[in-house]
């Protein structure tokens, strides 16, 4: 029982990342009709916003320490962060340690602008082109973004730790009456799961309870009629692209303490997120979220030794098997709408 609860918890944080990326993908597809293969790269750029802010906050000056030597036997140059010098080691050091949560504030404007520039500069030229063209151009863009990041940050993963307050793990097992250490779950992964729920809730509320969201939903249902009413739906859809980019970006920011970011991390999530969108139903926002969590949990169960002993290698293909099964039984996905990608 404890092993089952443990794998559900594990699946939730993986599912959170899938759900957040798939939510953005579905938003873009539902509004603009574009299949955006650069969405994984936006998740990666978000993660590197956290890396960048960490570097900015850790900007240092060097002092020579004659009591120590470097690898060539010269007096050691010791780096001292400016923040610690200006604000004192406690406050300055504390701000540096909290760079990941602070990076959300940095990433939102960066991602909104990047999304706006991407949509206006490149993607709008492909609205009337076949989906294959859209996939090719956005995939190409993803590779370009990836190589740009590698040029500036290198190929090696960059450690981006969570604030010390969230180090370590929570013993859920004790709460639920199991033995100590039976169900442990890292604090930061709990934060990530709760954070994803807040973001998903915020996006749904924005679409459901604001006038802007109502117009966007109307545009998603019938773009032409909304246009005929004199509403500039294109401008709103461009903003939605920016919002989808920001969702992917902050999902990336918060993911950095879970796995050290590298230039390739977006690609690792992209294909799985597309499977999530297809399983959830193309164009369905609740479907994307539901499928994200569902597939995250199923993937975790497939990694259990008990399962792998019976079906070796199942952890690598389970998501695709489920996708096949769902598409065979429900061709529109779990919550897909009639008519989407069916003309």
């Amino acid at each position: 029982m404890d092993a089952i609860i443990l794998q559900i918890l594990n699946g939730l944080d993986k599912g959170s990342a899938y759900a957040l990326i798939a939510l953005g993908l579905t938003l873009i597809f539902g509004t603009l009709g574009v299949v955006n293969f650069a969405h994984g790269a936006l998740f990666m750029i978000g993660a590197f916003c956290a890396v960048t802010l960490q570097k900015i906050l850790s900007a240092s000056y060097t002092v020579i320490d004659p009591s120590q030597t470097d690898f060539l036997g010269r007096p050691l140059e010791v780096s001292k962060p400016y923040l610690e010098a200006w604000l004192g080691p406690d406050l300055g050091g504390g701000i540096i340690e909290w760079s990941v949560p602070l990076a959300i504030l940095f990433a939102i404007p960066v991602m909104l602008i990047l999304g706006y520039v991407m949509e206006r500069g490149l993607i709008k030229h492909f609205y009337r082109r076949p989906h294959a063209d859209q996939i090719l151009v956005t995939f190409g863009l993803a590779i370009v973004l990836q190589e740009v990041i590698k040029h500036f940050f290198g190929a090696n993963p960059i450690p981006t730790p969570a604030p010390p307050a969230f180090a370590g793990s929570l013993d859920f097992g004790v709460w639920l009456g199991f033995d100590p250490n039976a169900i442990i779950y890292p604090y930061w992964r709990t934060v990530y799961f709760l954070f994803s729920l807040v973001i998903i809730g915020a996006v749904f509320s924005f679409l459901q309870f604001t006038t802007f969201g109502m117009v966007v939903r109307a545009g998603m249902a019938d773009r032409e009629t909304v246009g005929l009413l004199g509403i500039n739906i294109d401008r709103r859809f461009t903003i939605m692209f920016g919002i989808a980019a920001a969702v992917a970006g902050i999902a990336g920011v918060m993911y950095t303490p879970i796995n050290s970011p590298n230039y390739h991390m977006g690609m690792d999530f992209l294909v799985l997120s597309f499977v999530v969108v297809v399983v959830g139903g193309m164009g369905s926002l609740p479907g994307a979220v539901l499928a994200g969590f569902l597939l995250g949990i199923v993937e975790s169960f497939a990694s259990m030794n008990e399962v792998k002993n019976i079906l070796p290698g199942i952890d690598q293909i389970i998501i695709y098997l489920i996708a096949i099964a769902i598409l065979l039984t429900r061709p529109r996905g779990l919550m897909g709408r009639k008519g989407v990608m069916e003309e």
Binding site: A3, Q7, D13, E299, M304, N305, Q316
Partner: peptide, 20 residues
Amino acid sequence: TVLTPLAATDFSSYIAPVLN
């Protein structure tokens, strides 16, 4: 002894059962 896929990026589901 547990084999993990070379392409794996998140090892939480392999690590979680270790303590137990």
